[in-house]
């Protein structure tokens, strides 16, 4: 059964999810991804930002066998199927960690801190994890 808020033609707001933490070490990245997957069902304008250690969430070739945790990075590849296509990484965070767009498991747009600031100002809701 559809939830009440899914039946109404509600307003479309700009939602931005800011991922700032490394994929493992804490649960923020995994649980943030769970929010984004649920959010996809609400037909809102969704953007994802990866900055600080959050850029590591999209790093290719993650192998978590040694730490006994699930490697959830393949899930990011499924985002396109949820119509979540606005993915941004912060240029300065990438550069200071020696990462380039080629190191990422999905195509991303690289934005400078200043460009991200303007994008953030346009949002209605910003959730940071």
């Amino acid at each position: 059964m559809a939830e009440p808020w899914e039946e109404e033609e509600g307003p479309v707001k700009k939602f931005m999810y800011v991922n700032r933490k490394a994929p493992y070490g804490t649960i923020y990245a995994l649980e943030s991804l769970e929010v984004v997957l649920i959010a996809a069902a609400f037909d809102q304008d969704v953007s994802l930002v990866f900055m600080d250690d959050g850029v590591y969430q999209l790093k290719k070739g993650q192998d978590t066998k040694g730490i006994g945790m699930k490697n959830f990075s393949p899930t990011y590849r499924a985002l396109e199927g949820y119509d979540i296509e606005k993915l941004y990484v912060e240029k300065e965070s990438m550069e200071s960690r020696g990462l380039t767009a080629d190191d990422m498991i999905i195509p991303v747009e690289m934005l400078s801190k200043d460009e991200l600031t303007s994008l953030m100002e346009e949002q209605d809701v910003v959730m940071s994890f």
Binding site: E3, F15, A39, M127
Partner: peptide, 20 residues
């Protein structure tokens, strides 16, 4: 309840304030 309640709050409220 589910995470949908968070997204709904973001849609319905004029401001969503995050404490973390």
């Amino acid at each position: 309840s589910g995470l949908g309640q968070l997204i709904e709050a973001g849609i319905q409220a004029e401001r969503l304030v995050v404490f973390g």
